[in-house]
Amino acid sequence: MSPKPILSAFRQALSESWAGGAGALLPLGFFAGAAVLVPLGIGTEPGMLRAVGPGILWVSLALSSLVTLERIFQADVEDGALDLWLQAGAPVSAIAAAKTFAHWLTAGLPLALMSPVLALMFQAEAGIGLLTGPLIYGLGGLAFFFWGGVGAALSATVRRGGLLIALIALPLYVPTAIFGSMAMRGAALGDTAPLLLAASTLFALAAAPFAMAAALRLAAD
């Protein structure tokens, strides 16, 4: 099996996310916008914002992944790329994983890198926590994108599948959201929460590509 289709799918996914206007800045804008709405909704008391800040960022990250995932496989179904991969016997699970990873690189990682700025706006203490934040949001985001990718692949042939992806992915996001916010709060479990987060992300990386491949084979029929 040649790595060529995997690499080309990866490169294409990267370039696609830059095409079409604002490109990779769009998810960033959505992420910031969603997070900034919260103090307007619940009030600006600093202690409360500090308490809810990490959680708000998790929710915004989950929402950003959901809204950006809708189109990830639809184009491949529509323009026939998927049929070509299947005809060529290319490893669909690896292609799906590469595409999802590229998607995370352009729409997930930037959000994680921007998280310290938003954390400061939510009155987080400036310190070491600000530096570990991007790592934890990055890890958790990876799991969000891979499980969300399963929802996206399952609804690749569904018109306006966005809401469907959200409903499908929501229960799958639970472990990541829980371990992630525990890791951010440095909760009673101390150091185990980041490890559990990493473990659940690895589980997503291992399991989701096969589900995506099965769903994409279905979409091609």
Binding site: P171, L172, L218
Partner: peptide
């Protein structure tokens, strides 16, 4: 109907795979 059956089966299996992890994380939470 065929597509509904296949998509549903994939999702149900993915869900079942995740149920232990969801349960574990919720217990921890």
């Amino acid at each position: 109907r065929q597509k509904a059956a296949r998509a549903g089966a994939i999702l149900a299996m993915v869900g079942a795979l995740n149920v232990p992890l969801i349960k574990f994380s919720v217990d921890m939470f």
